[in-house]
Write a protein that binds this DNA or RNA. Structure first.
Lengths: 118, 118
DNA sequence: TTGTTTTACTTGTCAATAGAAAGTAAAGTG
DNA sequence: CACTTTACTTTCTATTGACAAGTAAAACAA
């Protein structure tokens, strides 16, 4: 992933810029999980893909900083943190669906996880 | 990027599988350029984003191996190689358009490069 | 109230990858 | 026969990723 903050963008192409923002192996999976209703660190860790905790921590912080997700304390449990999508994060549903469709058609033996059935 | 070949997939999720296949900073930009009609190594190197030649070589080889692009010799010049999209590569136009739309709306100051005007 | 568990991280280590710059080799051109 | 073009390859360094272990604060259980 790219260092966050004011780095020189590679170009003004919307594809390049979007890849600079979320073009790695984990960001979209975190956004997928939050879109499915997961809220907490350990729920995200338990996803099938097996993200390492240091990587998850870094990505969550990063996604907050770029405004795709937000982080709120739980009301009833001071240890708990609730992560959720911002409006910008939710708007990634379009690309996400296009990727899902492509994957289902072009990568053998892929299937939607039950929680994603539409 | 992930090592190519028979690696254990992270999950059967079409998003995860698609990211395993092309989820990095360069693959989609190469596919974009080929979709725009570029054919040769040096045309790809000259793109605004400035890919290093060693990285481009590796990605071209990889994208051939996974069947998203194909490599053919030129008829008139034995040095020249013509890269182009396979049918599977062309089918990435859907995700690509979704990403373009998202980028244009959500990343400030992005614009289509002239060749992409639709 | 003391020990255990839960939650959300942080740290350390090692291997793999990315990126920059320079070099190379075969084919074509004047 | 020198020079250029094309498509790489090599070398080096710095960053990142994966894995394992550790930590700290809050909550719960006895």
């Amino acid at each position: 992933m790219r260092k966050i903050g004011p780095h020189p963008r590679r170009s003004d192409c919307p594809i390049a810029c979007t890849l600079d923002l979320i073009g790695d192996r984990w960001n979209l999976l975190i956004i997928r999980d939050l879109a499915l209703g997961k809220q907490h660190f350990d729920e995200l860790v338990e996803s099938e893909e097996g993200i390492a905790t240091n990587v998850l921590t870094k990505r969550l912080k990063y996604l907050c900083e770029v405004g795709l997700i937000k982080k709120l304390p739980s009301e009833d449990d001071a240890r708990r943190v609730c992560y959720s999508l911002t409006a910008a994060g939710e708007s990634l549903e379009g690309p996400l669906e296009a990727i899902i469709d492509w994957g289902l058609e072009n990568v053998p033996n892929t299937r939607l996880i039950p929680a994603m059935a539409r």
